[in-house]
Amino acid sequence: MIKAGIVGGAGYTAGELIRLINNHSKVTLDFVYSTSNAGNKLYAVHADLLGDTEQSFTDTINADVDVLFLCLGHGNSTAFLQNNTFSDATRIIDLSNDFRLNADANFEGKDFVYGLPEVSKEEIKKANYIANPGCFATCIQFGLLPLAAAKKLGNDIHINATTGATGAGVSPSATSHFPWRDNNFSVYKPFTHQHLGEIGETLEALQGAKTGELLFIPNRGNFSRGIFASIYTKFEGTLEEAKALYSEFYKDAPFVHITDAPVNMKQVVNTNKCAISLIKHGDNLLIYSAIDNLLKGASGQAIQNMNLIFGYEETEGLNLKGTAF
């Protein structure tokens, strides 16, 4: 059994990490760090943990844990690691965007590997430090990775993707407040979303050249969790050739599933899965991609990375059923 610690324990991603770790056969939860909740039971904040654990939040850290998950706000992981030291044997998985880009991957002698297992599985297995991908970035990349690997992303790529309210984090804001969000739909950060950088770097590394422009319109949906992306770009082959391309690329990816049926978010919410379907219209390939933003887009992917690092089955602790009904 390995020991895990969580820093920033009051947020949605931390709540899902706690749930996953508590049901993982190879890991024990050593501590959940939260200065604002120290002494409170975990279920006082994460109500779905009632009856599962009597553990409490703490304001002290065990520097010798085997794996540390950083669930801090973007920009805060850097400051935390500057102010806190851990054993050289401690593996760190950061869920913020602090270390995802190539320019930020080396931090004070720590080399962070971009933790998208479907692309970098062998590198992750040997890594000590992981930059867990963003939720939009994960969903969109899954829709495009096979095309990049086949050197077929030379044209502009049009992306429209909608995320649930949990994507905004646990702290209330004007656009996550229920009366505003309910029965509402809105666009934010068109063409400038912060996940574009990591998407572009991954695709260009696979393609071996610059891709077409990523034209990304992110939306806020009036549901709690999940991301649904619609992506289209020019594709010279047939639909059957596209399906074969995707099936071959993901043949060893246990959580990515190509289907002929229409994709919907209820297939993937509460799971670590990504569901993909393809449509050919004229010379355009339309790709639908759906994930749970808190699991495959955050905490589930972090556990998947942990499994790879410690030599466990990649799917350990992640065989979850969707909440379709």
Rank of each mutant, 00 (worst) to 15 (best):
K3H: 13
V7K: 10
T13W: 10
L17V: 01
R19G: 03
N22D: 09
N22M: 11
K26Y: 08
T28E: 13
L29Y: 08
D30V: 00
S34F: 01
A38T: 00
G39V: 01
G39P: 05
N40I: 04
K41N: 14
L42I: 08
A44P: 01
H46R: 07
D48F: 13
G51W: 02
T53N: 05
S56W: 01
F57R: 00
T58A: 12
D59M: 07
T60G: 04
I61S: 09
I61M: 09
I61A: 09
D66W: 05
F69Q: 06
C71P: 13
G73Q: 13
H74M: 09
A79C: 05
F80P: 10
F80Y: 15
Q82R: 13
S87G: 07
T90H: 06
T90M: 02
I92E: 07
S96G: 14
D98P: 12
R100D: 02
A103I: 14
F112Q: 06
G115D: 02
K121E: 11
K121P: 04
K121F: 08
E123K: 11
E123I: 05
I124A: 07
A127K: 04
N128D: 14
P133D: 10
F136M: 03
F136N: 01
T138M: 04
I140G: 06
I140M: 05
P146A: 08
L147Q: 04
A148E: 04
A150E: 09
A150P: 04
K151E: 11
K152A: 12
H158F: 13
A161Y: 02
A165I: 14
S176H: 03
F178V: 11
P179Q: 08
W180I: 15
D182W: 01
N183T: 00
F185T: 01
S186K: 03
F191D: 02
F191L: 15
T192A: 13
Q194I: 12
G197A: 12
T202H: 01
T202C: 14
A209N: 12
A209W: 04
T211P: 04
G212T: 00
E213K: 15
E213W: 00
I217G: 03
R220P: 00
G221P: 07
Y232K: 12
E236A: 15
T238A: 00
E241F: 03
K243L: 09
L245N: 07
L245Y: 03
S247Q: 14
S247W: 00
E248A: 14
F249G: 05
K251Q: 14
F255I: 01
H257R: 06
A261W: 01
P262W: 02
P262K: 02
N264A: 04
N272L: 07
C274L: 07
L285W: 07
L285M: 11
I287E: 05
S289Q: 11
L294M: 15
L295R: 15
G297R: 03
G300Q: 12
G300S: 10
A302H: 09
A302D: 10
I303P: 11
Q304F: 02
N319L: 15
G322M: 06
A324W: 12
